[in-house]
Design a protein around this nucleic acid. Structure first.
Length: 712
DNA sequence: CCCTGCGCTTTTTTT
DNA sequence: AAGCGCAGGG
């Protein structure tokens, strides 16, 4: 790796080897490079690598940083201990593995991902409903996440809840959390929440963890939430060697509880902090940076800084408008094709191109066109390997082996493949489990004596239970890969695939995933120091959204156009960027238009992040109309397009038009349920049936009702 | 118990 | 347009 020289402020940051250090750095100024060089510098000055902890935003960033830091030190050091570089979540998992029993969780706790969380959320809200005021799993999870980010536990949420919806969510939160605890499971937020609680309630554990490191470095500090902030403080208060790096203009995770106040208040938290500003942008050509600077200047509450472009020249960014999203995708993809096919200096490698968008439904049209034009592409954050149904099924088996209390996983596999244990039987057993306050797994043996469970089903359950137990017993004894292969053989998953999927090609594709999973386990077993099923599951849970580190996929990706959301693009750069769907309702997103102020500012930062990803060329595209639920809707150009060109008045008018339209939509949305309720007889009937138990939708009654149903 | 088809709802970003 | 829940037949 060539070592480009550092400029003066960068050097100053790298050479500050102790004490609190804040690096306030704009986009493309070499933030990550400062951290990497500083790690290498510390080691050169005799700090043991193992005493350094660096925290990054993604696992991918962590891997890359580790590579580079070790590269700077030369190969001979590779054998020695390495600095610890990981995400907050990985860090917390490791802490919790050592201490979580102090909090009453099993040491083999499961980590629930989004899909698992939705299952739990769904059953938590099942009968919490007042009038037409209902809660959707997604809404509940968002609210819970917001509370957890602010360290609000379930019991406190009830008191804090203000709106009716929040009241409902608070009640569901209690159930949700109870279900997780009963399953010996934690969700992603719990990883942080539990760690914070551990540090607060068990000083000896905090001391042990804080003593592992003498230097702490944190990248993307503007995106830390309250939990992360307190964990950082707990870890750094002893040695005070804390270096944080970030850019307040790139704070885009406010919805997850991130607060810019943490980076802006760093100097207050650590009064002796040294502050370094980086304002020389080495990434983007001057006209691109100009656009970005003008755009972000529309945000009022920010640390004022102007980025200087060190790369002059370059084309002015283009603004392109199309009839609809199909035309938009066609035009962009056709242009990409031409750039790839060009000869000589104009030739562009697919991997130098990125298409950035706001929401996950946008790439659909682009995928279609890219396939049609046979342009290689990678969709980042889309359906990953670990989201495939067959992989999730088999992973559920593994998770039950590791932790039989894991109810979501147990429910998923108890009749997959179908083995004659129907929903009726499962419901009976589930209510037994609830009545006895036991995990479902523990009441399975009682099925044989439970008169309500059909004899045939009870026998199937017993077979299933013994099978799982037998494999559990083999876990520590035989190689992991062998055990799993035989397990998948025993349940005859191959036949299940043949039954469900009609064409041989489908079956083959699905079976390939199964084999890939077995391979992934084998690879893990070969790589890990002390391979364990738990370790494997932990890796898949934390890195699941990323692509598997499969050589084949890696090679394909090297030559592919990147499709991703603006959020995933943070920290990356591409020579050629297309920002698509630059419309009101998408960017800024509808839900931010509703709230105005704060939220629009975050959308503006998101747009800023997008623009500053581009090195050489940038195209911003939009459609005049866009399909929504099968209907074509006219679109308003994004106010940000006007803002970045300095047309502030026009931007203002668009903002007004956009809110007006949002009001209309909201009115329509509110009116619709009335119509539906009036139109539909069946709806009335259900309402009548329930009416005996269902009073008006008052908050207090709502609480009583839903609390009552918690017991059932 | 298991499968199919119909109708209803659907509005963001992710470790 | 698509995924989910529910009803009805094998």
């Amino acid at each position: 790796m060539p070592a480009p020289s550092l400029n003066r402020p960068q050097r100053a940051a790298v050479r500050t080897l102790s004490g609190p250090l804040l690096v306030l750095a704009g986009a493309g100024t070499g933030k990550t490079r400062v951290i990497t060089y500083r790690i290498a510098e510390l080691i050169k000055h005799g700090v043991k690598p193992g005493r350094i902890l660096a925290v990054t935003f993604t696992n991918k960033a962590a891997r890359e940083m580790k590579e580079r830091a070790l590269g700077l030190l030369g190969r001979k050091r590779r054998g020695a201990s390495a600095p610890e570089i990981s995400t907050f979540h990985s860090l917390c998992v490791r802490v919790l593995r050592r201490h979580i029993t102090l909090l009453g969780y099993p040491s083999a706790f499961s980590i629930y991902d989004r899909g698992d969380q939705e299952s739990v959320a769904r059953s938590a809200i099942r009968d919490i409903r007042v009038g037409h005021e209902k809660l959707r799993p997604g809404d509940l999870l968002a609210q819970i996440s917001a509370w957890k980010g602010a360290s609000v536990h379930a019991e406190q949420a009830l008191e804090l809840a203000e709106t009716d919806k929040q009241q409902l969510a608070a009640m569901a939160y209690e159930r949700y959390q109870a279900a997780l605890r009963a399953a010996g499971a934690v969700d992603f937020d719990d990883l942080l929440l539990c760690t914070e609680q551990l540090f607060r309630e068990h000083p000896e554990a905090r001391f042990a963890e804080a003593s592992r490191f003498d230097h702490l470095l944190i990248d993307e500090y503007q995106d830390t939430n309250g939990l992360q902030y307190r964990i950082v403080r707990a870890l750094a208060e002893r040695h005070r060697n804390i270096c944080v790096v970030g850019d307040d203009d790139q704070s885009i995770y406010g919805w997850r509880g991130a607060e810019v106040a943490h980076i802006l208040g760093f100097a207050n938290d650590w009064p002796d902090a040294k502050i370094v500003k980086l304002e020389d942008n080495y990434r983007s050509r001057e006209p691109i940076l100009q656009l970005a600077n003008t755009l972000i200047s529309h945000n009022s509450a920010r640390h004022d800084k102007k980025l200087r472009a060190s790369r002059g020249g370059g084309d002015a960014p283009r603004f392109l408008r199309f009839e609809d999203e199909t035309a938009e995708a066609q035009a962009v993809v056709r242009e990409i094709r031409q750039r790839i096919d060009a000869t000589g200096e104009d030739r562009v490698s697919p991997s130098d191109i990125a298409v950035l968008f706001r929401t996950n439904e946008q790439p659909r049209a682009f995928e279609m066109e890219l396939r049609r034009e046979r342009v290689p592409y990678v969709l980042v954050g889309g359906m990953s390997f670990y989201d495939r149904k067959e992989v999730r099924d088999l992973l559920a088996y593994l998770r039950v082996l590791a932790n039989p209390s894991d109810e979501v996983s147990l429910l998923r596999i108890i009749n997959t493949p179908p083995r004659g244990i129907g929903t009726g039987t499962v419901q009976t057993l589930l209510s037994d489990a609830v009545a006895q306050g036991q995990p479902l797994w523990n009441v399975l043996p009682s099925a044989l004596h439970d008169g309500r469970v059909p004899h045939a089903a009870a026998e199937r359950i017993e077979l299933f239970r013994r099978m799982i137990d037998a494999y559990r017993a083999r876990l520590g004894q035989e190689p992991l890969g062998d055990v799993l292969r035989q397990l998948f053989d025993t349940i005859d998953y191959r036949s299940e695939l043949e039954r469900v999927y009609k064409t041989p090609a489908d079956v083959e594709a699905r079976w390939n995933s199964v084999e890939e999973l077995v391979n992934a386990v084998a690879q893990y077993a070969a790589r890990a120091d002390q391979p364990s099923l738990l370790g494997f599951l932990e890796e898949t849970a934390l890195a699941g959204r990323e692509d598997m580190r499969d050589d084949k996929t890696d090679k394909r990706q090297v030559h592919a156009v990147t499709l991703m959301t603006l959020h995933s693009a943070k920290g990356l750069e591409f020579p050629h960027v297309y920002m698509v769907g630059m419309e009101e309702g998408l960017l800024p997103h509808q839900r931010s238009v509703a709230d105005g102020g704060q939220q629009i500012a975050e959308e503006r930062r998101l747009c800023y992040v997008g623009v500053t990803r581009a090195q050489d060329t940038l195209a911003l595209t939009l459609s005049k109309a866009r399909m929504k639920w099968g209907k074509l809707r006219p679109a308003i150009p994004s106010r940000f397009l006007m803002e970045m060109r300095g047309e502030t008045d026009r931007a203002q008018r668009i903002a007004e038009a956009s809110s007006a339209r949002h009001q209309e939509d909201a009115a329509k949305h509110d009116g619709a349920p009335k119509k539906r309720a009036a139109k539909k007889r069946p709806a009335k009937r259900t309402a009548k049936k329930r009416s005996a138990a269902k009073p008006e939708k008052k908050p207090e009654t709502a609480r009583r009702r839903a609390t009552g149903s918690t017991n059932t």
